[in-house]
Amino acid sequence: MNWLKNIVGRIYAVYGLLLFAATLLIVLIPIWIISFLPDPRKTRYFLNIGRVWMKFYMPLIGCPVFRKGLQFFEKGRQYVVVCNHNSLIDVPVTTPGVPGVNKTLAKSSMGKIPLFGMMYHIGGIMVDRSSEASRRESIVKMKEALAMGMHMVLFPEGTRNRTGQPLKEFYDGAFNLAIDTQTPIMPSLLFHTRKIQVPGKFLYAWPHRIDYHFLEPIETAGLTRDDTPALKEKVFRIMWDYYTAHT
Rank of each mutant, 00 (worst) to 15 (best):
N2C: 08
L28N: 08
I218M: 11
Y15A: 04
P38G: 08
L88A: 14
G158N: 07
T247W: 11
I34L: 13
P187L: 05
I34E: 03
F175S: 00
L154F: 04
G9M: 07
P30C: 13
T23P: 00
V140T: 13
T95D: 12
G69H: 09
R136I: 04
T163G: 06
A221F: 07
G111K: 05
W32M: 14
W240D: 09
K103E: 09
W206Q: 10
V27W: 07
P207F: 06
L18W: 10
I26M: 11
R194K: 15
A245N: 13
G117N: 04
P166L: 06
P38H: 10
F116K: 02
Y242I: 06
L167M: 05
I34N: 02
K168F: 01
P59R: 10
L203I: 13
F56P: 00
M152R: 00
T95M: 15
G100C: 12
V82D: 02
P40Y: 04
D90W: 01
F155S: 02
G16N: 03
S109T: 15
L25V: 14
G9A: 10
Y12F: 14
R10A: 07
P217R: 08
S131R: 05
L203M: 14
L70T: 14
V80G: 00
P38I: 07
T94F: 03
V8R: 14
F236I: 02
R136Q: 12
L18Q: 11
G97I: 05
T220I: 07
L19R: 08
D227I: 03
M150S: 04
G222W: 07
V52Q: 10
R225Y: 09
A178H: 02
H151C: 05
S87I: 03
F202W: 14
I11G: 09
V140Q: 13
K195M: 12
I33L: 15
N102I: 07
L88V: 12
S188R: 01
F202Q: 11
V153Y: 02
K195P: 01
I185L: 05
Y212K: 06
P217E: 08
V82C: 06
T23F: 14
E157C: 10
G69Y: 10
P156Q: 06
L88F: 15
L231N: 00
T94G: 03
K68T: 13
A147P: 02
K55Q: 08
Y120S: 04
V14L: 15
Q78C: 12
A174G: 01
T163S: 15
L4G: 02
V93Q: 01
Y242V: 02
T193C: 05
I34F: 09
H246R: 14
T224E: 11
R209K: 15
R10K: 15
T220E: 03
E169P: 01
L115T: 12
G16A: 15
I238T: 13
R44Y: 13
I26K: 03
P92N: 11
P59K: 09
F155Y: 15
T163A: 08
P207E: 06
K103D: 07
L19N: 06
F214M: 10
V93H: 00
P156G: 04
G164R: 12
M118V: 12
T183S: 04
V127S: 04
R44F: 11
Q182V: 01
M58F: 15
G76K: 09
